[in-house]
Amino acid sequence: MSRIGATFDRLHGEHRQALVPFVVAGDPDLATTGQAVRALARAGADMIELGVPFSDPVADGPINQRAYQRALAGGVTVRDVIELVGQARSAVPVVLLSYYNPIVQYGVGRFCADAARHGVDGVVIPDLPADEADELVTAARPVGLDTIFLLAPTSTDARIRVVAGRSSGFIYGVSVTGVTGVRDRLPEEIQELVERIRKVTRVPVCVGFGVSTPVQARRVAEIADGVIVGSALVALLEQPGDKVARLEQFVRELREAMDAVGARGAGPS
């Protein structure tokens, strides 16, 4: 079983939900990201999602777009991010989020092999739908890299079956029809999406896109197996001062809010 699968098994046993913070690798530089990985794990992250910078991130809102630009200004590449993961030796599983073209140019097979060897546990590609992913899935399976696909509120039940069949580790449930970003309110349709996914598969479902506050994280934890928080953390990296300390503090707050749910035994199964 993969490190991600084992993490969900443990969390289910504890009636807790996964907290998955996201930052862009190389924002503002790779050294800070290395520190952030350790700090996020200390603060209670169950997995860490690292963004590989891309010039044209069509699924992302302005906060993450700026983060990608900062990382690209430092010349950060797929290879740098894979090596960062190797050096960080994270105590918790690490998932890379990358748009497809940097992986295509690196070579899909080589990417999967190198990522797995450096300790990457899974990959999310927001512009690679499951039915275009033959090459990725074929290369990822033998090296033990989990392939995490997305499902959205617009996904039909037929799509859910396609995506569930190719997903391992977890399924990324997109909370809104829209791009990543900080939102005041989350739509009601998340719960319906998660329920429809659960009718089809036992693969855990983590929900992201717009989850920005401890209160929202708690609400999502009542519904899903995990909570992905991205833009709200990335926004903290835009402020001057001790960025890593701020990340750590905010993730602690998210963790405390979510664990208040777990104690009530609201987890699935």
Binding site: Y100, E132, A152, P153
Partner: peptide, 12 residues
């Protein structure tokens, strides 16, 4: 060719 877009757009 193909369809390399976010999942949200696939049904559309």
């Amino acid at each position: 060719g193909g369809r390399y877009v976010p999942e949200t757009l696939i049904p559309a």
